[in-house]
Design a protein around this nucleic acid. Sequence first.
DNA 1: GCGAATTGCTTTCATCTGTGACTATCTAGT
DNA 2: ACTAGATAGTCACAGATGAAAGCAATTCGC
Lengths: 152, 152
Amino acid sequence: MSKLRLSTFLPYRLSIASNAVSKAIAAAYTERFRLSIPEWRLIAILHEVEDATQQDLVRATLMDKVAVSRAAQMLEENRLVARRQDARDGRALRIRLSERGRALYRRIEPTALEYERRLLAAFGKEEIAQLSEMLGRLAEAAGRLADEDAAD
Amino acid sequence: MSKLRLSTFLPYRLSIASNAVSKAIAAAYTERFRLSIPEWRLIAILHEVEDATQQDLVRATLMDKVAVSRAAQMLEENRLVARRQDARDGRALRIRLSERGRALYRRIEPTALEYERRLLAAFGKEEIAQLSEMLGRLAEAAGRLADEDAAD
DNA sequence: GCGAATTGCTTTCATCTGTGACTATCTAGT
DNA sequence: ACTAGATAGTCACAGATGAAAGCAATTCGC
């Protein structure tokens, strides 16, 4: 009598769902906007905060600093953002959307929301809130778990 | 007035949660059992079905056939599985756990269940069922979404 | 039954990603 | 001031991943 079945194992189910969603979304972003997901994330945040150092972006997106650095370089190359030294801290780069970047964001936003809507078409408002909340708790629990084990 | 905030965007939240969980689990499996997640998945399935072709494993794990091929080779190298030609179909390889593989499985199972338990410690039974079910629906919706777009 | 198409699996190659080392700058303690 | 240590960002490498091509065996259509 086995207690573990892969198909019901939660980490597995989570990974499958996340992969499926990421794949669909990544395909849409790269095809339509020539943007990777890391790049899209930076744009989304920069649209919210207007101006941020890469370190801020690391915190906001939970991405690795190298990933942020690379995405920021790519965006700069494509003139979607401008980067300049922080006045106070010579190490930090302050990044902001260019007009071009802002324009691209305005094109993407409806697409992104539409994707989310289609993805969640079969979910009730209540369910969505619950799901979102549970994902947060899950991420938190996983973080704690990793920390505890690292302490071994 | 912006309608989209990254931190509440569901694909983003899903990706964050999945990454956090995968990372924690992968660390545990590699450290303790010298096993990658794809390898672990094959072992888990093979423990359930006893005997499968790689194609069966592709279907069961939703992994790429290349990933299955590589994981199977690695497991064979470590004598955790045996591979032999299918009697009827000379192309297919039938894979089964070796005694060594079965023994390893028995060591992993409690650990895996314990991880899942710790991950879900703050969740009620009802919640877990709901979460699991919603993840399934989400994966399905994402699959449909990708198919539709591919048809463009 | 013979050639074409399909299927199962492996190999190759191009890309992505994370890690560790490195530079430059900043901060704190003395 | 000077030094030690922390922090921002980049770079270079190595391992992982996936798509495409390849090979071998099988099945299908005529």
